[in-house]
Each structure stands twice: as structure tokens, then as C-alpha cells.
Design a binder for these strands. Structure first.
Lengths: 120, 120
DNA sequence: TTCTTATATAATCATGTAGTGATATAAAAG
DNA sequence: CTTTTATATCACTACATGATTATATAAGAA
């Protein structure tokens, strides 16, 4: 115990947990554990408004949980590369994101499919 | 990945992370990682009001992170017994609670000391 | 019993946060 | 160039949350 410390202060650590303290953001992490997704895919899968999803993605990105990749007019989000043991444990104890994706069925536009999206 | 799942739903998982999304509650967990403490000790160590500490302890207890033990007029709190890999990872990546305790110096009342408290 | 100590809870207030609708930006299509 | 598509951001509203003050409960002490 008390070996690796990713946050220098309790304030910083609390900020990271605030990013996880939301049902929608946890669903996003579970979905991204199956591969990157563009915003419009997440909007379709989660059946929520685009501004709401974008704001959640911003918080997850600022907290360091996800990264973004811009291609043409799409922005693809994926889990961040530096997966600490803590983040791995967080992801492993989350409900499975597979149901989230499958329940949504086909939703990608033709143009989104052209853009390297990993549509199911 | 996706092996053990402590929360059945994303809603439940989010509730647990909400309990961690506060600087004071993380400090309490770091302090309790060095042993159980009664409420009045935590009030002294954290230099915060007693109702505020009690409310934080309530949230940590309802989220399953800590347990309580009542003796006479004191209530001692300690880390919960069932430490999952996730909770272990959370505690291991927290700032050290030792400084919190030491910085506060002597603070226990004579009566609190009689009550089996692990005062530093 | 009365007073003091330890803790919990309720009411209130100030602040933070999620969702919505409107708007801005940027890229590609027509 | 105009339109459409994808995304981000802003302003606003409703709701959640943390701290404080006051109060309630319970156990000792006097």
C-alpha cells in the first residue's frame, strides 16, 4: 500500500473520481473498452443529445481517461494509452459495454463508415 | 478485462465513485488506512466541523468503503473488510495519509484515549 | 437529575453539475 | 458558394452536493 501515487494531492484525486461519478461517462468508458468510437456513434448508442455527449467526453478527456483522434469532420475517442493498474481495475469492475453497443443495433451513417469507424 | 463486476449497473457504479469524488472523503480513507479512528479524532485531524465529518462518513459507509464500531459514546470507523482489487488500487494511488495524522499532532481527549482509540 | 461529551440528523444556503437549445466552427458535398 | 454533416461551446435551468447552524439522541460524569 502507498506505493504508486498518480495524484499529488487529494484535490487532484477527487477531480479524477468526479469524472467517473456519472452513469453516462461510465457507459462511455465501457463502450470504448471495445474500441474507438466517433461522437456521432456514441450519440446513437447512448441515445442522448450531441452536446451532452460532447460535454461528457470533454470531462473524460481532461481527466486523462480517454484520448481523441480527429479525421476529416469526425472526432474519434478511445481509452487513453497509459492504463494504470487503477484504471484497469476501474474498467474491469464496470458492467459490460457490449450490451450497450449491441442493443443500439446499426446506427452509423454511410459517411461515418467510410471514416475508419469500428462500427458494429 | 470484464471479469469481476462489483456493480450490476452503471448507476450503482457511479454512486460508488460519487463517494470518492470529494477531497475530504479521500483524506478520510487515507487516514483510516493507518487504522480505525473515532469521529472526534477525524474532526481534529481534518480540522472540520463535526456535522460535516459525520455526513462524509455516512456517504463512505453507505458506499461500502468503511465500517463502524460503536463503543460507549464513541463511534469508531475503519476501512471495510472486503477490500476488492479496485478498492486496493484506489487506496494505493491515494496520497499518503500519514502526513494528515502527524500534522495534526496530539488532539485526543483523555476520555477518547481510554476508549481503545489508536491515537498517534 | 443535571451537565457535559460524542455523534447524528434536519434545515438552509451557496455552489457545482447535467441536460437542453441555440450558436459557432469546420469539413465535405452539391 | 450554399448546404449538409460533425462537433464544440455557450447560456440557461433544474437538480445535486457540501458546509453551517441548530437540534436531537445517547452515554457518562457530577
Amino acid at each position: 500500500m502507498h506505493v504508486t501515487t498518480t495524484s499529488d494531492t487529494f484535490e487532484e484525486a477527487a477531480e479524477r473520481y468526479k469524472a467517473l461519478a456519472d452513469k453516462t461517462r461510465l457507459r462511455i468508458l465501457a463502450i470504448l473498452s471495445y474500441g474507438e468510437r466517433c461522437v456521432c456513434e456514441l450519440v446513437a448508442i447512448l441515445a442522448m443529445s450531441q452536446p451532452s455527449i460532447s460535454q461528457h467526453l470533454r470531462k473524460l478527456r481532461l481527466a486523462g481517461f480517454i484520448k481523441e483522434r480527429k479525421t476529416a469532420q469526425w472526432v474519434y475517442y478511445a481509452l487513453a494509452d497509459d492504463q494504470t493498474p487503477l484504471i484497469q481495475a476501474i474498467l474491469s469492475e464496470l458492467p459490460d459495454g457490449k450490451e450497450e453497443v449491441e442493443r443500439s443495433g446499426a446506427f452509423c451513417t454511410d459517411r461515418c463508415l467510410e471514416g475508419e469507424a469500428t462500427c458494429s
